[in-house]
Structure formats: structure tokens, C-alpha cells
Design a binder for these strands. Structure first.
Length: 273
DNA sequence: AGCACCACCTGTGGGC
DNA sequence: TGCCCACAGGTGGTGC
């Protein structure tokens, strides 16, 4: 589900809602939701900690506490919704409740149960248990010249697969990758080494643009995505190729669907070469 | 290095 | 109408 824009929208919603609040003991309905440490220790340790700020790296939400960090990855169908006291959130996919001392709480729901939470004590643990194979955030921490240089170092890799590789750069998922490749006119099956410098520059600009627009429109909701207030995103209406197989591109050609890097891929055979 | 395949889960939509 | 299969926004492990 959530790619970088969706996680960023949640981060921006959440920070003013929960910044400064102190956790009480979590209610863990599905123990496998807790990746680290073991659920009982997670629950005991989180209780009493206060939120200082919330940041993001790729698709990871990083809740900075007065001591340590709560890391959250929503994977495909995770939702993290804030509700004030007196408005408890119950749905059939509720996996975890993170209550605060003032009676409000964060409700974590996840139909497919792929999402995970970690509670780490310091930077070293964060890098060891959570961000071990996560590259620089493609939206905030990767300069254009570094991106172009990195494409050259991975010249044999298929460009779509590379953009989806979170170790290369963090944040791109299937939707925004297809959209960025469309905007830059690049066929998703090409190897990184075949992309010219001018194309690479355009690709970088397209990535930043499509992520910025995704954030501006509140993310993409096909089915499950909700922001921290439970509302849907609107960017799905702006998508040019993703999910539009069989429809006409603005050039008149029919948008095609194929499999690239093991993922469903939509592209315009006329605009993308 | 790069990639294909499976696993983890549950639900939905399309085809027959 | 109902069943079955393919597929869904992500990632980690294995093995070629």
C-alpha cells in the first residue's frame, strides 16, 4: 500500500496530533505485528515514553521518543489512525492500539498483517534491526548528481527494478515508479546503463515531481490507504498509467500492462522508449 | 550482480 | 448464483 507520499502524509498529519504525548501500555492483538523486541518487552518498554518528533526514511515512519525510536512499516495494507479520547477505533483488522496518557490513541489496522513495528533504544539498533538495507530517502536525501552516478554503478540492472530496490534509494513503490517512468518517457524494462545523462536528469526530476504531487493530493487510495485522520487520498485520479491498462494515453495510444521486476507494470508503448 | 520464485496474509473481482 | 483462481500498494530469503 503506502509508498513514500502516503507515509509522508501520515507523518505530517500525525506530528502535530501526537507530538509531546506520552504512551501508556499498548494493546497487542496480533503479536506478530511486533518485529522487535519480543511483544511483552515491547509493551513494557514503550509505556511511559514521550514523543519528541516524527520523521521518515523511505516508507518507514520513525517516531523519535525521549529515549529510543518507534519504527513503523505499513507494508501493503497497514493503517495508522489517531483518535481522540471517546472515539475508539474498532475494525475487524485492528492489530494494535497505542494509547496515550490523555486517553487518545493510535490504532494500527492491517488486513494482510504484513506491517511491522520495532522499538529500538539507539541509532545503532535502528540501523541494525530496521534500516540495515535501506538506502537514502529518495525525496529528501538524494541529490540529482548522486542519483545519476548511482545509476551508472548499477548499469546492468533493469531501471524499474532498481527504482523499487529500497537499498538503492528508499521510498519508491509500484505506483509512483510507473508514473515517474511515464513522465520521463522511459521504458521500464531498460537497463540503467542504457539511460543517457539527459534521460537520467529527467527521470530524477519526474520522480521528485510525482512524489511531490502525491503528497500534495494526500496520497493514493485504491482500497485501503487512509491518512492519520482516517481520510482517503486523492492522487489516484491524477495517475497517468498505473491501473489504466486498456485506456488511452494522452498521445492516443493504448496503455499496456506487462510484468517487470516481478511486478505488474503499466506503460505507454508510444511515449516510453 | 541481478533476477526469478516463494513466503508471509486476507480480501476482492473477473471468468467460467 | 457460485466457485476458483489470479492478483493486490511490500519486503526478505533462497538459489541459480
Amino acid at each position: 500500500m503506502p509508498e513514500l507520499p502516503e507515509v509522508e502524509v501520515i507523518r505530517r498529519d500525525l506530528e502535530p496530533l501526537v507530538g509531546g504525548k506520552t504512551f501508556t501500555r499498548p494493546l497487542i492483538h496480533i503479536p506478530t505485528t511486533i518485529a522487535y523486541p519480543e511483544p511483552a518487552l515491547f509493551a513494557a518498554s514503550l509505556s511511559g515514553r514521550r514523543i519528541r518528533s516524527i520523521c521518515r526514511r523511505g516508507k518507514y515512519l520513525l517516531v523519535n521518543l525521549d529515549h529510543g525510536t518507534l519504527a513503523i512499516h505499513l507494508r501493503m495494507t497497514g493503517n495508522l489512525v489517531y483518535r481522540p479520547e471517546g472515539q475508539p477505533g474498532e475494525d475487524r483488522f485492528l492489530r494494535l492500539v497505542l494509547p496515550f496518557t490523555d486517553g487518545s490513541a493510535l490504532y494500527y489496522s492491517d488486513m494482510r498483517r504484513f506491517g511491522r513495528l520495532w522499538l529500538v533504544e539507539n541509532e545503532e539498533e535502528l540501523n541494525k534491526f530496521v534500516l540495515r538495507r535501506v538506502g537514502p530517502d529518495i525525496y529528501n536525501d538524494l541529490k540529482k548528481e548522486d542519483f545519476i552516478c548511482m545509476l551508472g554503478q548499477r548499469s546492468r540492472a533493469c531501471i524499474k527494478g532498481l527504482l523499487l530496490d529500497q537499498g538503492f534509494a528508499a521510498g519508491m513503490g509500484n505506483i509512483y515508479t510507473d508514473e515517474a517512468l511515464f513522465l520521463s518517457g522511459i521504458d521500464p524494462r531498460r537497463r540503467a546503463g542504457e539511460i543517457t545523462k539527459a534521460e537520467a536528469e529527467k527521470l530524477y526530476d519526474s520522480i521528485i515531481k510525482v512524489l511531490r504531487m502525491g503528497i500534495k493530493f494526500g496520497g493514493t487510495t485504491f482500497r485501503d490507504y487512509r491518512n492519520a485522520r482516517g481520510a482517503r487520498g486523492d492522487f489516484q485520479a491524477k495517475l497517468k498509467v498505473y491501473g489504466r491498462r486498456g485506456e488511452h494515453c494522452r498521445c492516443g495510444a493504448v496503455i499496456e500492462k506487462t510484468t517487470v521486476a516481478g511486478r505488474t507494470t503499466c506503460y505507454c508503448p508510444c511515449c516510453q522508449k
